[in-house]
Structure formats: C-alpha cells, structure tokens
Simulated assay, not measured.
Amino acid sequence: MAEVKPCKVCNFSRQKSYGLVVSSLDQLKVKGGETLGIAPEKPVSVVLEDDGTIVEDDAYFLCLPSNTKFMLLHGKEAWGPTNKIDGGTAWLSRESVALDGDEVDMMFSGTDTWQSLAAQLKQDLASIILLSDSQLQTLMDVPCANLASALGFQQKKAQALQDTLQTVLDRREESRQSKELLQLYLKTVESEREQEASQEAGGDVMDETDGMEVDSGSGFMSRTLMVLKGKTSPETRLSNQELQMVVNKGAASMEQVLGLEADRTATLVQACEAELEGRLQQVQALKSLSAQSQQASDALTTEDTNQSQAKRSK
C-alpha cells in the first residue's frame, strides 16, 4: 500500500481551504479538484501556496513535509502572494489577472529568477529540499560572485552552497536511476519465473497429449532436443535449468545426444554456456544495484528528515 501524506489544499483566492490525505500528486489533483469544486475534465496545476513553486512530479511531491499547503489552479488562474490586509484577494484586481495564453504558459513554465530563489534561501537554507530540479539548476548556473552578493555570503561559502545544490541534484538522479534499475530487476525476475512456470506447464501438457516425453538416454525433454537442433540461436529459447544441463554434459556427450557434427555441437555448447553466464551476471548486477539503491535511498531519506526537522526547529 502506498504511503499516504496529510496535506492542505486551497483555491487561487485562498477563500476555500481543506485538509486531505493522499498518496500521490495525481490523487491530490483529483481529490483536491473535487473538494474545491473544479470540474473533473478541467486540467489542474499544483503549486505551493506560500511561494508559488510548481509541483510537477511525484518525486518532488513525496519529498515535501506533511501538512504542506498546496494551491490548485485551473484555466487562467495564477498564484499571487498573500495580502495581509484583505486576506489575499486584492491582487485579483490587478490587470495581470487577465492573461493571454502566452503569459499563462510563461507563468506555469516553472522558471524562477535566481534572485527570488536566492532570497528564499537567505531566509531559510533548509528550503533547499523543497526546490525543484530546475530551480536548483537555476541557482547553480548563477556566477558564484553574484550569488554570494545576493545571499550576503563570502564567495567561498557561496561556492560551497552551489556544491551542495549539485550534491542534492546528483542524489535525486541516483535515486531515480536506482528505482528504475530495481524495477527492471524485479521485472526480469518475474519474467523468468513466468517463463519457467510456462515451460513446466507446457512440458506436462506435451508429455500427456503430444508425446513430448523425457528422453531416457539423455535426460532431456524431446522439446528441448528439438530446440537444440534448431538453427536460429537455440540457446536463447532455453530455460536456465536446460542451459545448465547442456553445459554440464559437455560437447562430447551432447554430440552423441543430438547426432550433430562435432564443430556445430561444440559451438552450440559454448553458446549455451555464454548465455547462462550472461544471465547470471545480469541477475547479480541487478541485485548489487538493488542493494546500492536501498542504501542511497535510506541515506537520502535520513538527510531529508534531518533537514526537515532543522527547518521546523527554526
């Protein structure tokens, strides 16, 4: 079951605000839209209520702390700062509310001036964890001297900050790649299980109905012998167990079993051995990557938790 996250949603005028529990960004859009009275067929954009940062993917959404407040926008609605005098609605009268299509696209493009991002970090360095990948890259592209001036840092400290931003980006990318490799590993394992189950079931059926019995002399099923005598990469059509049997018997024994020329049999056995070794290496590599992925994910989670706690303590 996916982990759920308590959060808050409001509309663009901040006149409606509700608490929700969701497990993904898509669920936030659906449940939040229903709660705020937005028609299901209308596309919805999600931004952080306090600074208008656009939330584009689940990876960033899941990094945010519980009870984060989001603003749901649709149509030509746009985020605006809170006005403490009138409750945040005076900005609706600005001419910029009547935006054309190009202006809306620019506002929703996720581009931020580096000065505004620097001002946000100056107030709270722990907010680095809340920045999107594009925002981190924006700050990294700023000349170090300019960033130092905006933050009131020495240039050496600003350079250390940019190095930290790069580290955060690298870890996010490593986490994404590790998850993808883990998914590939799990898919490969499941595929092999299904293939072996299918071959076992198919072998039983053929033994009963089509006479595909086990050859008493060789120990191979007749289906396996037919595959081995095929001309187009027969090693790729065999299970790991069948490949191991061929390798264990060796070229001399397989020559007698298959009744093929010595050269062709030796080449076939070598191909089976290479195929089996390749499959085992792939599984071992994926297992290693899975372990590294878990370690990286645990380290990133610990660091994120520490930064979130530091932010709350401030």
Score class of each variant (00 low, 15 high):
Phe70Ile: 07
Leu72Ser: 05
Leu72Tyr: 06
Leu72Asp: 04
Leu73Ser: 05
Gly75Tyr: 07
Lys76Ala: 03
Glu77Leu: 03
Glu77Gly: 07
Ala78Gln: 13
Ala78Arg: 13
Trp79Phe: 10
Gly80Met: 11
Gly80Trp: 13
Pro81Arg: 07
Thr82Cys: 03
Thr82Arg: 12
Asn83Met: 02
Asp86Ser: 10
Gly87Leu: 02
Gly87Phe: 02
Thr89Cys: 08
Trp91Lys: 05
Trp91Tyr: 14
Arg94Ile: 02
Arg94Tyr: 08
Glu95Ala: 12
Ser96Met: 04
Ser96Glu: 15
Val97Tyr: 13
Ala98Glu: 13
Ala98Ile: 12
Ala98Pro: 00
Leu99His: 08
Leu99Tyr: 07
Asp100Asn: 15
Gly101Lys: 14
Asp102Gln: 09
Glu103Met: 11
Glu103Asn: 09
Val104Tyr: 09
Asp105Pro: 00
Asp105Gly: 01
Asp105Ala: 15
Asp105Cys: 05
Met106Asp: 11
Met107Ser: 04
Met107Gln: 12
Phe108Trp: 12
Phe108Ser: 09
Phe108Val: 03
Ser109Arg: 06
Ser109Glu: 06
Ser109Gln: 06
Gly110Arg: 05
Gly110Met: 04
Thr111Arg: 06
Asp112Gln: 11
Asp112Cys: 05
Thr113Gly: 07
Thr113Phe: 03
Trp114Gly: 05
Trp114Ile: 06
Trp114Leu: 08
Trp114Tyr: 12
Ser116Trp: 02
Ser116Lys: 15
Ser116Pro: 01
Leu117Val: 08
Leu117Ile: 12
Ala118Phe: 03
Ala119Val: 10
Gln120Ser: 12
Leu125Val: 10
Leu125Lys: 10
Ala126Phe: 15
Ala126Pro: 01
Ser127Gly: 04
Ile128Ala: 07
Ile129Tyr: 07
Ile129Thr: 12
Leu131Trp: 03
Asp133His: 02
Ser134Pro: 00
Leu136His: 11
Leu136Thr: 06
Gln137Val: 10
Thr138Leu: 03
Met140Ala: 01
Asp141Ile: 01
Pro143Trp: 07
Cys144Met: 04
Ala145Ser: 06
Asn146Tyr: 07
Leu147Ala: 07
Ala148Gln: 05
Ala148Thr: 09
Ser149Trp: 01
Leu151Lys: 06
Gly152Lys: 06
Phe153Ile: 03
Phe153Tyr: 13
Gln155Val: 14
Lys157Thr: 10
Ala158His: 02
Gln159Leu: 14
Leu161Cys: 06
Leu161Ser: 05
Asp163Leu: 04
Thr164Gly: 00
Gln166Thr: 02
Thr167Tyr: 07
Thr167Met: 06
Val168Arg: 04
Leu169Ile: 09
Asp170Ile: 09
Arg171Lys: 12
Arg171Tyr: 10
Arg172Trp: 02
Glu173Arg: 15
Glu174Trp: 08
Glu174Val: 03
Ser175Gly: 06
Ser178Trp: 09
Ser178Gly: 15
Lys179Phe: 11
Lys179Arg: 15
Glu180Ile: 14
Leu182Phe: 11
Leu182Asp: 02
Leu184Lys: 08
Leu186Gln: 15
Leu186Gly: 00
Leu186Glu: 15
Lys187Asn: 12
Lys187Tyr: 05
Lys187Arg: 14
Thr188Gly: 01
Thr188Ser: 10
Val189Met: 13
Glu190Leu: 13
Ser191His: 15
Glu192Lys: 08
Glu194Lys: 11
Ala197Gln: 14
Ser198Leu: 13
Ser198Thr: 13
Ala201Lys: 09
Ala201Ile: 09
Gly202Asn: 10
Gly203Lys: 01
Gly203Trp: 05
Asp204Val: 06
Met206His: 07
Met206Tyr: 08
Met206Asn: 08
Asp207Trp: 01
Asp207Cys: 04
Asp207Ile: 00
